[in-house]
Simulated assay, not measured.
Amino acid sequence: MRPAVALIGIGNPYRRDDGIGPAVVTAIGNRHLPGLTVTVTDADPSRLIDAWSGADLAVIIDAVRCDPSIPGRIHRTAVSAPGPGPAAASTHGLGVPDIVRLAEALDRAPRRLVVLAVEASDLGFGPGLSPVVAEAVPLLVRNVLGELQAAHHPHPRTPRASQHCPSALRR
Rank of each mutant, 00 (worst) to 15 (best):
Ile74Pro: 09
Ala43Arg: 01
Gly9Leu: 08
Asp50Tyr: 00
Ser46Ile: 07
Leu7Thr: 02
Ala168Asn: 02
Pro22Arg: 08
Val144Leu: 04
Ile28Met: 06
Ala27His: 06
Gly19Phe: 11
His153Asn: 10
Asp18Met: 02
Ala87Gln: 04
Asp50Asn: 12
Val59Glu: 08
Gly21Arg: 05
Leu123Tyr: 12
Val96Gln: 06
Ser46Gly: 10
Ile10His: 09
Pro82Asp: 10
Phe125Ile: 15
Arg73Ala: 08
Arg160Val: 13
Ala103Asp: 10
Asn30Pro: 09
Ala51Thr: 01
Arg112Lys: 03
Pro110Asp: 08
Val59Met: 11
Ala4Asn: 06
Leu7Ile: 10
Leu36His: 06
Asp44Ile: 13
His32Trp: 12
Thr158Arg: 04
Arg142Gly: 01
Gly85Val: 07
Ala136Trp: 10
Ser46Cys: 09
Ala150Lys: 09
Pro22Tyr: 05
Gly85Lys: 04
Val132Phe: 00
Leu33Asp: 11
Ala109Val: 05
Pro138Ser: 00
Arg16Glu: 02
Asp98Pro: 01
Val64Trp: 08
Pro154Lys: 07
Thr41Pro: 07
Leu57Glu: 04
His92Leu: 04
Val79Ser: 03
Gly72Asn: 07
Asp67Phe: 14
Ala58Cys: 02
Ala23Gln: 06
Val59Pro: 02
Phe125Leu: 15
Thr37Asp: 09
Arg112His: 02
Val141Met: 00
Gln163Phe: 15
Ala161Cys: 12
Val132Gln: 12
Arg112Glu: 00
Gly21Lys: 10
Arg171Thr: 14
Val79Arg: 09
Leu116Met: 15
Pro138Asp: 03
Cys165Pro: 11
Pro110Tyr: 06
Pro45Lys: 05
Val132Asp: 01
Val118Gln: 01
Ile10Trp: 05
Val114Tyr: 01
Ala109Thr: 00
Arg157Tyr: 07
Ile70Trp: 12
Ala4Cys: 09
Pro138Met: 00
Pro127Ile: 15
Ala81Cys: 02
Ser69Pro: 01
Ile28Gly: 09
His75Pro: 12
Leu140Asp: 06
Gln163His: 15
Glu119Trp: 09
Arg73Cys: 08
Val40Arg: 10
Gly83Leu: 02
Leu145Phe: 11
Ser90Phe: 07
Leu123Ser: 10
Asn30Trp: 04
Ser80Gln: 15
Ala136Gly: 07
His75Asn: 06
Ser90Pro: 06
Pro86Lys: 03
Thr77Pro: 02
Gly19Ile: 03
Pro97Lys: 11
Ala27Pro: 05
Val115Ser: 11
Thr37Gly: 00
Gly83Trp: 10
Arg65Asp: 05
Arg2Ala: 07
